[in-house]
């Protein structure tokens, strides 16, 4: 019997969508980049799965994503500070995060919860959704990208390309990136001069809290009031990912990947690209502080972060082999053996 191999979404958890490196070149017609909120996580997930670094992944929030392999074996990899569980023919087992795993037909993987942050990326070998305007990223507002232009729902089946090869050895990032709890860095401007002289000090000196209004478009913060020097409106101009808009009430909103491309609120500062993923991963209720840097310092930080990311990716290693012929294992109708194939060092302990 020949069936095509698919990943079935049993539950998307809090929120999950297909994203890749994003859609470039269309801001001039009002189309934001979309794409993953944390590009480093995507690159690690893809490297663990042996995929191109900007290949499409499932980006999910707050855990709960639950998927099943259907019609064949599926290799996938999870990046993020997660608790992951695999449900196979012989029951459940916990899986170390930051690794790839090959699910046999019918096996399920679930991100039970996040240990830190709120974003995880799942790379899947053979996931090649059609590009719309140059990217597979879901941008729900215009109904483009991903699966039918929408976030993933329970029951969605993602067809995998026929030449997908799940038999490569599994990989692990033995030393995941440490959580960075330093301040979120920003570059003052473009409209810092639309605020009272003390507003920038208030933004940088104060503590802000993430409100429940936090999604792929942006994060509304609450904290020290930012006073405008005049009207809280400008003639609309371009926003960028990281723009900190301040509407009349004086509370900042940081714009993210899906945000509108232009806006009429003054923007007191811009969060640097290297810190945007960390900001997007903050949960409602968590607090944060900002620190000001120059645009040139921001670029230095971007280059340092890139070096760090490359080092992390370079440190990815194949899981210790244990002499089992994986092809025979998965194509044969074995009931046991699946766990052994995953590598003894990383076998769950319960």
């Amino acid at each position: 019997m020949s069936t095509r191999t698919e990943v079935e979404i049993l539950s998307p958890g809090a929120f999950a969508s297909i994203q890749d490196g994003g859609r470039r070149g269309h801001r001039r017609i009002g189309v934001p980049w979309a794409g993953v909120l944390d590009r480093r996580l995507m690159r690690i997930a893809n490297a663990l799965a042996g995929r191109a670094e900007d290949a499409a992944v499932i980006e999910c929030f707050d855990g709960g994503l639950h998927v099943a392999a259907s019609g064949g074996a599926v290799k996938l990899a999870v990046a993020g500070d997660t608790v992951v569980e695999v449900e196979g023919t012989e029951g459940r087992r916990q899986l170390a995060p930051w690794r790839s795993v090959t699910l046999a037909d019918g096996e399920q993987l679930r991100i039970r919860k996040m240990e830190g942050g709120r974003i995880a990326m799942v790379a899947i070998v053979g996931l090649e959704p059609a590009a719309v305007m140059g990217s597979a990223s879901t941008y729900a507002r215009a109904g483009i990208g991903g699966v039918d232009g929408r976030a993933l729902g329970a029951g969605t089946r993602l067809a995998l390309s026929a030449d997908a090869d799940p038999w490569d050895s599994d990989r692990v990032l033995a030393q995941p990136p440490a959580a960075d709890t330093g301040p979120i860095r920003l570059v003052p401007g473009p409209q810092a001069d639309h605020f009272s002289p003390t507003a920038l000090d208030a933004l940088v000196g104060g503590e802000y809290r993430v409100t429940p209004e936090a999604d792929r478009m942006g994060i509304r913060l609450e904290g020290a009031q930012l006073e405008h020097a005049g009207a809280a409106e400008i003639v609309s101009d371009a926003t960028v990912p990281g723009s900190i808009q301040v509407p009349g009430a004086g509370q900042p909103i940081v714009l993210l990947a899906d945000a509108q491309t232009a806006g009429g609120y003054p923007k007191i500062a811009t969060v640097i690209g290297a810190d945007l993923g960390r900001l997007a991963a903050l949960r409602p209720g968590q607090s944060l502080r900002f620190a000001a840097v120059s645009a040139a310092e921001g670029a230095c930080i971007a280059r340092a972060a890139e070096t760090e990311t490359r080092a992390l990716i370079a440190s990815i290693r194949a899981l210790p082999p244990d002499g089992i012929d994986l092809m025979a294992l998965y194509t044969g109708n074995l009931v046991d053996g699946v766990v052994h194939a995953l590598g003894t060092e990383y076998r769950p302990l319960y």
């Binding site: 003052p188 401007g189 690209g273």
Partner: peptide, 18 residues
């Protein structure tokens, strides 16, 4: 010339619609 973070800058010719 206005800074818009570490990856963008804005050249502003004025502040009104014209």
């Amino acid at each position: 010339i206005l800074d818009a973070g570490d990856a963008a800058l804005t050249i502003e010719f004025g502040s009104i619609i014209d």
